[in-house]
């Protein structure tokens, strides 16, 4: 995700202009989104730790993520294959559906370093992931209450170079990792798991 806010708006306008020309024909937002539930849970509220909850995420974040999966810019095992079945107009429909759902907090255990993680978050992440990563309006992914294994994958991929998350985030993430190692990454994850 790079410069999501501006890109998101531009892309949203583009999608509306071309509405009706999607790969999935006239399939409705509901029809498209219901097919996601087998992996992401009913209406995007995931009960499986490796799969993110996508309920309540912003339209721009969902569309941008799907575009990145489709192009392969965002590393994945299966989302690249799935995203290639749709175009931007379909992504916009899905984004509208899931952004209208309530954010879902995972029911998971919390590690012991949440307090340290809170400080790391405040110093490094809060600027973009505002209000502890709970609001969709900042067009960044949810952190609070998101499944830890999923968040760990995204951070591991960023740190090992398989997913470039953009200059700003990579700089902060690398800084945290260089200074505090895997332990500080875990502290961040513990903190996000502690939030609802």
């Amino acid at each position: 995700m790079k410069n999501t806010q501006t890109l998101g708006v531009a892309l949203l306008i583009g999608s509306i202009a071309f509405s009706g020309a999607s790969i999935a024909g006239e399939a409705s937002a509901e029809a498209l989104s219901y097919t996601c539930a087998g992996c992401h849970g009913t209406n995007g509220a995931s009960g499986g730790p490796a799969m993110p909850s996508i309920a309540g995420m912003s339209l721009a974040y969902i569309v941008e993520s799907m575009k990145d999966f489709k192009s392969g810019e965002r590393v994945s095992t299966i989302m690249t294959r799935i995203a290639k079945g749709y175009d931007e107009d379909d992504f916009t429909k899905m984004g509208k559906f899931f952004s209208a759902q309530n954010r879902h907090s995972a029911n998971q255990s919390v590690g012991s370093m949440a307090k340290k993680g809170a400080k790391l978050h405040k110093d490094n992440c809060e600027k973009c992931h505002t209000e502890q990563g709970t609001v969709a309006e900042d067009d960044s992914g949810f952190l609070a209450g998101q499944w830890t294994p999923y968040l760990r994958y995204t951070l591991v991929d960023a740190l090992d170079g398989s997913h470039d998350m953009g200059k700003k985030m990579m700089k902060k993430l690398n800084k945290v990792h260089e200074k505090g190692g895997d332990q500080d990454i875990q502290a961040l994850l513990d903190y996000y798991a502690s939030l609802k």
Partner: peptide, 17 residues
């Protein structure tokens, strides 16, 4: 290895759905 974790999460979500 992730495909296995996704398989387990898929199981939870499709049965929940």
């Amino acid at each position: 290895a992730r495909e296995v974790e996704y398989a387990y999460s898929w199981f939870k979500n499709i049965t929940g759905d």
